[in-house]
Design a protein around this nucleic acid. Structure first.
Lengths: 189, 189
DNA sequence: TTCGAAATTTGACCTAAGTCAAATACATAC
DNA sequence: GTATGTATTTGACTTAGGTCAAATTTCGAA
C-alpha cells in the first residue's frame, strides 16, 4: 500500500507542463512557528497543506476536553481536516505545527475549479483520497487486532522519528492509550 | 455528512444519457444466496457490488481466527474490499451475503477504462471514495470517544434494522466488543 | 412437532488499561 | 548555574470489558 505513495509522486512529476504551471499558480508557500495553528476547530478548512518541512499534528477534543491526535504529518504528507475540506463545513479538528513548519498551501475553491479543466487533477485527487481511505482502514484494523504494546512497537518500527520528535502525550493519544500506560510500555521494552 | 449520499445519488441520476448507457453495459445483475461469499480472503476484488436487495457483511479474520466485521451493507450501499479493489491486490477481507441478496456488479477494469473516457465517472468515483473516507473517520472517532454501550445505542438509533436483521455475533465484532458484553449491554438497556 | 444445532444469555472470574496522585527528570529563561 | 514550569515516570488502586463455562432460547430441517 505504501508503494501507492510512490505512484502518486510519479503521477505528479509526470503531469504536463500546463497543468503544473496552473497548479503552481494557485499555491503559496507559508511558514508556521512551533505551536501555531494551521486550522482551528469550527473553522472551515479552505486550504490543503502540503508539508515541505517540519511536523504538523491533527487532533480533536473530547467532551471532557481531552485531546485525541488523529494524524501526525511530516515532510511530503498532505494535511487537511478531511471532512471539513470535503464538505466545506466547520472542522471538528485542529491542525497545529509541533515544530517550525513550512507548507505549500493550495486553495480549495481554486483547486476545485482547476479540476474541471484538467481531469488529470481529478485523477490525482482520487488517488490521494484513496490513499487516505486505505490509511484509515489500516489504522482501524490496528486498533482491533493489536494491543497497546504492539501498536507502539509497530509505530517505532515504521516511523522511528515519531518517537524522537513528538511529545509522549501526543503519541499516547495517537495510539489510543493513556500517557501513563505508554510510559510503562516504554519502560518495559 | 449523510447528505453527501444524496448528492452522490443526484449526481448519478443527472449523468448524461451516453454515460448512463455505457455504464449500464459494464454492469450485470447477480444473486447470492444467504451465506454465499461475494469475495473471499486472498482473492482480488475485481468487481464492485452495489446492493439492490438484501444484506452483505465485510469481515476479516484475526490471527487467532476471530471474525472482525468491518462493514454492514444494505440496499443502496456499495460493497467492495477497498484496498483490494483499489490496488488490485489480494483481499484481507471476505464479503458475504447474510441474506439472499441481489447486486449490480461492475467490473473494475471496465470501469477504469470508462473513467478515462468520461471524467464525470472519475468525479463520481472521487465522491464515493470521499464518502467512504469520511465514514471511516467517523467510525474511528466513535471507537475513541464512545464506550461499548454508547456505540451500541448510536447504532440502534441510526440503523435500527441492523439489530433486527443481523446476528448478534456480527454486531458485536462490528462494534468491537465481545458477544457476551453486547448481550449484557442489551439486557441492561 | 420435535429434535438438534446454532444463537443468545447468564454467572464467575480475570486482565489490560485507565485514573489519580506523587515523584522525578528535563528544559528554558533568567 | 538556578529557578520554574513542563514532560515523563512510578505507584496504588479501579474498572470496563474480556474469557471460559454452563444454561437457555431460538430456529431450521426432517
Amino acid at each position: 500500500m505504501n508503494s501507492y505513495l510512490i505512484k502518486i509522486n510519479n503521477f505528479v512529476e509526470n503531469l504536463d507542463a500546463e497543468t503544473q504551471t496552473e497548479l503552481a499558480e494557485i499555491t503559496v508557500r507559508k511558514q508556521f512557528a512551533k505551536g501555531e495553528f494551521l486550522l482551528r476547530q469550527d473553522e472551515i478548512c479552505r486550504q490543503s497543506f502540503f508539508i515541505e518541512r517540519g511536523i504538523v499534528r491533527k487532533f480533536y477534543l473530547t467532551e471532557d476536553g481531552k485531546e485525541i491526535t488523529t494524524e501526525l504529518c511530516f515532510a511530503d504528507d498532505l494535511a487537511v481536516s478531511f471532512q471539513s475540506y470535503t464538505l466545506q463545513t466547520p472542522s471538528l479538528e485542529f491542525i497545529q505545527a509541533t515544530e517550525n513548519t513550512e507548507v505549500t498551501v493550495t486553495d480549495y475553491t481554486s483547486f476545485q475549479q482547476l479540476k474541471t479543466r484538467f481531469p488529470k487533477l481529478l485523477e490525482l485527487d482520487l488517488m490521494m483520497t484513496e490513499y487516505y481511505a486505505m490509511w484509515l482502514e489500516e489504522r482501524l484494523r490496528r486498533f482491533h487486532t493489536l494491543d497497546a504494546t504492539k501498536r507502539y512497537q509497530k509505530l517505532i518500527a515504521e516511523q522511528p522519528h515519531v518517537v524522537r520528535q513528538i511529545q509522549l502525550t501526543h503519541i499516547a493519544s495517537y495510539l489510543g492509550v493513556s500517557l501513563e500506560t505508554l510510559s510503562r510500555i516504554r519502560a518495559k521494552i
